[in-house]
Amino acid sequence: MNKHESLEEELKSLSPWLQEQSRKQAGMQVPPGYFEQLELAIFDKIDAENLHRPGLSSRPGGLIRNILRPRMWAAAAAVAAIAVACWWMLHPQSGAVLPVDTYAEALTDEEIEAYLLENITEFDAGQLAAITDVDMPEQTPASAPAPGKAAKTTDDISPEELENLLQQMSEEELESLL
């Protein structure tokens, strides 16, 4: 039994009156050539809405493409850099204190030393050498080695020598010193 026969059977038992009615398009019509022109209308709409083949990148001119356009971002970055430079030149930083200096001033030498020892692994040899030269507290006479006892103190070693020395030491040796 095909679907038409099945429906006819169904209607026959349910409503013979409805079965007799014409079901073809029910008085509804379409303008001449409508279906032929429909394809054109839909593709016009697809173009107007700037749709693209699903799964492919946007066509030129799409909003997302515009937002992600690298040239636009480069121009924006250049404008921002010029604005910052102008502002910097017009507002000299006389007497201005950088935030990092403010924090450094609030810390004692002991606190800095303790921090450095706690986080020794975070610094490379060059940085440690520079800190030793510049930032560490000067040795007091009491802590200075006796004459002739050590060939060199850290004050006598150049940053490069210290770096070489630290590079030659294993991690275990370094940890034992600390």
């Binding site: 839909i42 709409k45 697809i46 699903p54």
Partner: peptide, 15 residues
């Protein structure tokens, strides 16, 4: 409605 239907189909047919 038919045009909107086909636009939806166009967008989603690969899914």
């Amino acid at each position: 409605v038919l045009q909107n239907t086909f636009i939806k189909i166009y967008r989603g047919v690969l899914q």
